[in-house]
Write a protein that binds this DNA or RNA. Structure first.
Length: 679
RNA sequence: AGCGGGGUGGGGUAGCCAGGAGAUCCCGACGGGCUCAUAACCCGUAGACCGAUGGUUCGAAUCCAUCCCCCGCUACCA
């Protein structure tokens, strides 16, 4: 794939936000780098079209709308407007932002599905679909749970998520239960339609070999294709969505019409601007998809196969971003580890540029990024304020006070060289999707500016040799000009202001990197500069951390407060003798360690009063760390027949209260010596 | 278990594919300087035997083998 610049116009897309909830910082992890990429390409005189839109279909939206007592359309509209506003406020500027419920997308989806049918890539098959008589609804994917036929564990409709991890075909799950009303579900035979994904294996292997973008996307997809490809069921029993041709009771699966949105939004852009959408989707102009790391499968396998099958061009690159952590904890709305863009960030008066800079410069694009208010404060204060902001301000204020205009002076060749090499490196880094690298390189020019200013001591020169001082300042203003251009993709709002401060009256967003070495004009009047980036005070950061921790506590309380798990049915009545058969004793844990190769198992040695401690294997690794178990007093069922688990013999069983997500070891109320019996 | 990604000074990173002299850069710590600037900026110092072990090599963070640990694929995720 040609690089910097592409030799043709390029289409950049972002993974579609699902119109079923608010925007959080995790979303921005994909959209902001994409916007930076697009702005950087434009600065490099590259013709770019940047499209996105809301993903509006699928069962979760239907269910959520029902709960709220509104129509799916109303729900979707609400969040569509929300995301549109958020993106504008964060200065993520799409050339088109539509919805997958737009007529354009319905039409394009039908076009593609019909082409796939015509070409023999779609076939019908009777399958058994779970159906809930109470809800009067078919239960796709996650909306049915039951027992895994392979391992007997509790499992979801499409996958045995807690047990063996196997993918489940519709109808395989035993004892299906509706996850919406918790009532029993039944199976009904239904005709559904499948896409012959398996026929695209060779195509995909070749396609992926040539796919640009980040390595994480390609490697992940190759791993899948090399294993096996099963045909995809592309229809669902729903009212809401794109109707499957000739079957009014079916809609196409949301993952069919969602990526087609990329095409539809390109068409909408073309209609609005007179542009040409076919050069991307039928021609060879490159298409670059920015997505979150969780939807690589769809973009690298299903989507190109569909496009190939229907006779359209395939993407040139897939750029998959790493996931986000909040305060070093895995992102989780229900556990409170979430930062909402609007209420937690913008509404507190933070400038969008700060978050843009943080997300772009924290770590490489494919790695996990940790959002922490403390680190946020640190990066902003030391880098944006201390290095870049301070250089621009000290320099422009000095120029304003002492000259009132851009002074006369020769350009220092070293300064020009530095600008040229930095610009080239930034362009290359952005083209490689290395946004942190680009940020660091750009920041190093600001650092160079500070050194240049410092070592030339213009504050001394101004008293001794005003001309020499003028030369230094003019060079510094040249550096400022280059910096503004280099930082515009990352911090567009602030750089727009800075551009005015150096006396430029053009639109900085439309300027190219070539302007960086075009000499600033001596005699240009300068206004008194204002500070661009102000320090984030400790109080403010503390306030934000308090909000976060309150939310986490509230979430924990909520989780603990409600019984959470369904109350299990009472077991049959027993005689005392039955109970007496159980030999339960107090024990003290002496050694605890994880069993390698196992996720859940711990190997324990428990003192139960005998000479030698007993070895017990417990499935508690997900709830307790080995070190926190050592020394605990526990209850052990000691006459259970020994069994080998993962090759380690277990001579007993620890008793614990089990509420699904939460598990608690049983201990004794008073300090009891090991060996005491429990009755 | 399998597949994929990763383990580099206190934290975060570069280098690894195409092995070579003192292992990069940022933050933090310490010392100094300067005072135009938002207690900012500049200069300097300390700190890692590059996850473990073994191997290939004149030479390995870089290549090979084995092992350990973390993360993702399995959630409300972009």
């Amino acid at each position: 794939m040609p690089n910097i610049p592409f030799d043709k116009a390029v289409l950049v897309t972002c993974g579609l936000p699902y119109a079923n909830g608010k925007a959080h910082v995790g979303h921005l992890r994909t959209y902001i780098p994409a916007d930076i990429y697009v702005r950087s390409l434009k600065k490099n005189s590259q013709e770019v079209t940047f499209v996105c839109g809301s993903d509006t279909h699928g069962t979760p939206i239907v269910v959520n709308a029902e709960e709220l007592g509104i129509t799916p359309k109303e729900l979707v509209q609400k969040y569509h407007v929300h995301f549109d506003e958020i993106f504008k406020k964060m200065d993520v500027r799409f050339d088109a932002f539509g919805t997958t419920d737009d007529e354009t997308n319905h039409n394009r989806t039908l076009d593609i599905v019909e082409k796939l049918i015509d070409r023999g890539y779609v076939y019908p098959k009777i399958i058994e679909i779970a159906y809930c008589p109470q809800c009067d609804r078919f239960l796709p994917d996650r909306y049915v749970s039951g027992t895994c036929p392979h391992c007997e564990e509790k499992a979801r409709g499409d996958e045995c998520d807690q047990g063996c991890g196997k993918h489940l075909e519709p109808g395989e799950l035993r004892e299906p239960v509706c996850t919406i009303c918790q009532g029993p579900a039944e199976y009904k035979e239904q005709e559904h339609f499948f896409f012959k994904l398996s026929e695209f294996r060779d195509f995909l292997l070749e396609h992926l070999e040539n796919l640009g973008g980040t390595l994480n996307a390609r490697n992940y997809a190759l791993g899948w294709v090399k294993q096996e490809l099963t045909d995809w069921c592309i229809t669902r029993n729903l009212e809401w969505g794109v109707k499957f041709p000739g079957h009014d009771d079916l809609v196409v699966y949301v993952w069919v019409d969602a990526p087609i949105g990329y095409m539809a939004f390109t068409e909408e852009w073309a209609q609005a601007t007179g542009g040409d959408w076919e050069k991307f989707w039928k021609g060879d102009s490159p298409i670059v998809h920015f997505i979150g790391g969780d939807i690589i499968y769809h973009h690298c396998i299903f989507w190109p196969a569909m496009l190939k099958g229907a006779g359209y061009s395939q993407p040139s690159a897939v750029v998959a971003s790493g996931m986000l952590k909040i305060e070093d904890k895995t992102f989780s709305k229900s556990r409170g580890y979430v930062v909402w863009v609007e209420e937690d960030y913008l509404d507190h008066g933070f400038h969008p540029d700060l978050l843009r800079y943080y997300l772009a410069s924290y770590t490489s694009h494919t790695k996990e990024v940790n959002f922490s208010w403390k680190i946020f404060q640190d990066k902003i204060n030391t880098e944006l304020v201390g290095v870049l902001g301070n250089f621009l301000y000290r320099n422009l204020l000095f120029a304003y006070k002492n000259f009132g205009e851009i002074p006369e002076g020769e350009m220092d060749p070293e300064v020009i060289d530095k600008i040229v090499s930095t610009t080239e490196e930034v362009i290359q880094a952005n083209a490689d999707y290395e946004f942190k690298k680009a940020a660091d390189i750009a920041m190093s020019l600001a650092s160079y500016g500070n050194s240049y200013f410092q070592s030339n001591e213009p504050w001394k020169l101004i008293k001794e040799d005003k001309d020499a001082c003028g030369k230094v300042i003019k060079n510094c203003i040249q550096l400022a000009k280059a910096l503004i251009l280099l930082f515009e993709p990352m911090t567009p709002g602030s750089m727009e202001v800075a551009w005015k401060q150096i006396g430029m009256d053009s639109d900085v967003h439309e300027e190219t990197y070539e302007q960086a070495t075009v000499a600033v004009v001596s005699g240009t009047k300068l206004e008194k500069p204002k500070i661009l980036f102000t320090k984030l005070e400790d109080d403010k950061i503390q306030e934000m951390e308090d909000i976060s921790s309150k939310r986490v506590k509230a979430a924990m309380a909520k989780e603990a407060g409600k019984p959470e798990v369904e109350i299990e049915e009472y077991k049959d009545e027993i005689e005392y003798d039955d109970f007496a058969k159980l030999d339960i004793r107090v024990g003290k844990i002496i050694i605890a360690e994880k069993i390698k190769k196992s996720k859940k198992l711990l190997r324990l040695e428990v003192d139960i009063g005998d000479e030698k401690p007993r070895q017990v294997v417990a499935g508690l690794a997900e709830y307790y760390k080995p070190e926190e178990m050592v020394g605990k007093t526990v209850n052990v069922l000691v006459n259970l027949k020994p069994v080998k688990l993962c090759g380690v013999e277990s001579q007993g069983m620890l008793l614990a209260a089990d509420a699904g997500e939460r598990v608690s070891l049983l201990t004794t109320d008073k300090d009891m010596g090991p060996g005491s019996c429990i009755r």
